[in-house]
Computed example of a mutant assay.
Amino acid sequence: MFRELGERIVGAPSILSADFAHLAEEVERTKAGGAELVHFDVMDNHFVPNLTIGPPVAASLVRATDLPVDVHLMMDNPDNLIPAFAEAGVASISVHQEAAVHLHRTLTRIQEAGCEAGIVLNPATPPETLEWALPAADFVLVMSVNPGFGGQSFIPETPEKIRRLREMTDKPIEVDGGITAETAPLVVEAGAQVLVAGSAVFKGEPAEEMRRILDAARSAGRSR
C-alpha cells in the first residue's frame, strides 16, 4: 500500500471510533466515501492509558473487507505481537520510536513477516531521532495528538513537524489525530499523504464524512 502510494492522498478511517458491534459495516461505509485502508489501533494500557483490541479482531476484519488493514501498535514490547498480526493478514504494522528498544531490528522483523513497516512519532519527539532508522522503514506516522484516546484536538505545531520530516525523507507520511475537513488541508500542504480520521468520520454518516475530509485534503494537495 505505502510502497505504491506515489503522489496520491488517501483516507484511512480509524476504527477506534467505530461501532465495534457493526465493525465490518462501518468500514464498508467509509469505503463508499473513498477510504483506501483501515487504521487499526492497538493499545496495551502500559505505553498508553487505554486498552483496545488484538490479532483475533484484526484477522476477522481482514476477512470482512478488501481494504488493507494498517496496524498501529501503541504498546510496550511491540515485537511480541508482530508475528500474530502478520499471520492475521494485515498489510502494514507501525511501531513507536519511543517504545521500540531496537527500532531497526523491529522494522526488519515486520518486513520479514511480509508487512510494510512504519515508524510512529509522538507529538514531542523530534523527527531528527529517525535519521538512522528511516532507510529501514516504508513510511512514517506522525501523531497529531497524544496517543491513547480518540476525539482529541489537533496539535497546531504538527504541520511544521511534517515539513521538517519531509525535508529528511521522501517516504510517505501518515498523520493520526484530530484530522477533520478543516485540519486535513494543513497536513497535506505540509507534505502528508495518508490521513487517519476517527471521530470526524464516525460522528455522522461515515461515507459522507470520509468524502468531506478527502475532498478538502485533495484540494489542498493540488495547490501545493
Results as ranks from 00 to 15, higher is better:
Arg105Cys: 09
Pro127Trp: 08
Met168Asp: 03
Ser199Arg: 11
Gly204Phe: 11
Ile213Asp: 03
Glu174Lys: 13
Gly118Trp: 00
Glu209Cys: 10
Val142Trp: 15
Pro123Tyr: 00
Val140Asn: 09
Ala197Met: 13
Phe202Leu: 02
Arg109Lys: 11
Gly177Pro: 11
Ile119Ser: 10
Pro185Tyr: 00
Phe154Met: 05
Gly198Cys: 02
Thr158Trp: 13
Ser153Ile: 15
Leu214Gln: 04
Val120Lys: 01
Val196Gln: 11
Pro127Tyr: 06
Glu174Gln: 15
Gly177Leu: 08
Pro126Tyr: 12
Arg105Met: 11
Glu128Cys: 04
Lys161Asn: 12
Gly191Asn: 05
Arg105Ile: 06
Leu121Tyr: 12
Met143Leu: 03
Ala137Thr: 05
Gly118Arg: 00
Ala192Ser: 04
Ala207Phe: 14
Val142Arg: 14
Ser199Gly: 02
Ala192Trp: 05
Asp176Ala: 01
Gly148Ile: 05
Lys203Val: 00
Leu121Asp: 14
Pro172Trp: 15
Phe202Pro: 00
Pro135Trp: 15
Asp170Met: 09
Ser144Trp: 05
Pro123Gly: 11
Ala197Gly: 14
Ala197Thr: 07
Ala181Met: 03
Ala184Phe: 12
Ala192Tyr: 03
Glu167Ser: 10
Leu214Tyr: 04
Lys203His: 15
Gly148Cys: 06
Met168Val: 07
Glu208Lys: 09
Leu134Glu: 05
Ala136Glu: 01
Arg164Tyr: 11
Arg166His: 11
Asn146Gly: 05
Ile213Gln: 04
Gly118His: 01
Arg105Leu: 12
Ala124Ile: 09
Ala190Arg: 12
Arg211Phe: 01
Thr180Tyr: 00
Met168Thr: 07
Ala192Thr: 08
Pro206Val: 09
Leu103Tyr: 06
Arg166Asn: 11
Asn122Ser: 10
Asp138Lys: 12
Ala184Leu: 12
Ala137Glu: 06
Glu209Leu: 09
Ile119Glu: 07
Thr106Leu: 03
Gly150Leu: 07
Pro156Thr: 00
Asn146Arg: 14
Val187Arg: 12
Thr129Met: 14
Asn146Val: 12
Met168Gly: 02
Ile179Phe: 14
Arg166Ile: 02
Val140Pro: 12
Gly204Leu: 07
Gly198Trp: 13
Ile162His: 03
Phe149Ser: 14
Ser153Glu: 14
Leu103Ile: 06
Pro126Lys: 13
Thr169Asn: 10
Val140Trp: 00
Glu209Asn: 14
Asn146Met: 02
Thr129Ser: 14
Gly198Leu: 10
Leu186Trp: 13
Glu167Thr: 01
Pro135Gln: 15
Pro159Gln: 07
Glu157Phe: 02
Ile162Tyr: 00
Pro206Asp: 02
Pro159Glu: 13
Ala197Leu: 12
Leu165Arg: 01
Leu134Ile: 09
Ile155Phe: 00
Gly114Val: 00
Gly204Asn: 08
Gly204Pro: 01
Met210Ala: 01
Val175Leu: 02
Thr180Phe: 02
Ala113Asn: 01
Arg163Asn: 05
Ala124Val: 07
Ser144Glu: 09
Ala136Trp: 04
Thr180Met: 00
Pro127Cys: 05
Asp138Cys: 06
Gly148Lys: 02
